[in-house]
């Protein structure tokens, strides 16, 4: 089952996500700070080395090598879930640079989280990483399930066919979600302009919007608990 479409898709998406995460980190102010710090360190080690090797080159190569190594290990283990944790970690410095409330000011660390790219690019990077994570997770689950059925005697051609179909639907739904999210963001930017006059009309608007939000949260919680109770009831009945 190793060389099928789903496996290649998993590797490709993991590599794509990792590439975007590295790119995001290299464009963050944290990376700039770290490279300057490394430059200082290299300056103090034997003379002349700074002329040959730049600190940013070392960090870039180290990151790429690190991720390559993890991808190889993941291919060997057939488990791609862990690499996305590192991807999110690498993406966070740049994502936090878009924050309106900067807690790092209290720690005198605000220069570490300054935006160096357009907010749209940062947002798209984040979307791609999360979409890739979702798709890869679903394919991994499907693969595990099919492996289980293979061990029970189902032909490998059948499981490969079902897995390839599942991969196609994962990609399709992942792509559609990406598109819908972008549309929501665009719509939201327009709606804030359109609805802002309406918001001023409502009296005690903070109270009104808070009550509305709490009502939605309670409703969501109610449906969630109802679903869980029904599921447990069915299990007990069986």
């Amino acid at each position: 089952m190793k060389a099928d479409l789903s496996y290649i898709t998993q590797i490709a998406l993991t590599a794509l996500s990792s590439a975007f995460a590295i790119l995001s980190f290299l464009n963050s102010s944290l990376y700039q700070f770290a490279s300057q710090y490394f430059d200082t360190l290299l300056y103090n080690i034997p003379q002349g080395i700074t002329g040959i090797v730049k600190s940013n080159t070392i960090i870039e190569y180290a990151l790429i090598l690190f991720f390559l190594l993890i991808i190889i290990i993941d291919i060997y283990k057939e488990n791609f879930a862990y690499i996305f944790r590192y991807n999110i970690l690498l993406f966070l410095p740049e994502a936090l640079s878009c924050s309106e409330i900067n807690f790092f000011n209290f720690l005198n660390l605000s220069p570490l989280f300054q935006p160096r790219r357009e907010i749209v690019l940062i947002f798209i990077t984040g979307l791609i990483i999360v979409t890739c994570y979702n798709i890869v997770t679903f394919i991994s689950t499907g693969r595990e399930l099919m492996r289980n059925y293979s061990s029970k005697g189902v032909r490998s051609e059948v499981t490969s066919f079902v897995l390839s179909k599942q991969t196609k639907y994962s990609l399709l739904l992942g792509g559609a979600t990406l598109l819908v999210t972008i549309l929501i963001v665009i719509f939201n930017s327009f709606s804030s302009v359109l609805l802002s006059p309406l918001a001023t009309v409502v009296p005690y608007k903070y109270f009104f919007y808070s009550a509305l939000s709490i009502a939605f949260i309670i409703m969501g919680l109610f449906f969630f608990l109802y679903d869980k109770l029904r599921a447990s009831g069915q299990r007990n009945f069986r």
């Binding site: 994502a95 936090l96 878009c98 409330i101 900067n102 907010i119 984040g126 979307l127 929501i184 963001v185």
Partner: peptide, 8 residues
């Protein structure tokens, strides 16, 4: 953090 990209 008042971070809209993360919320989206």
């Amino acid at each position: 953090f008042g971070n809209m990209p993360l919320i989206y």
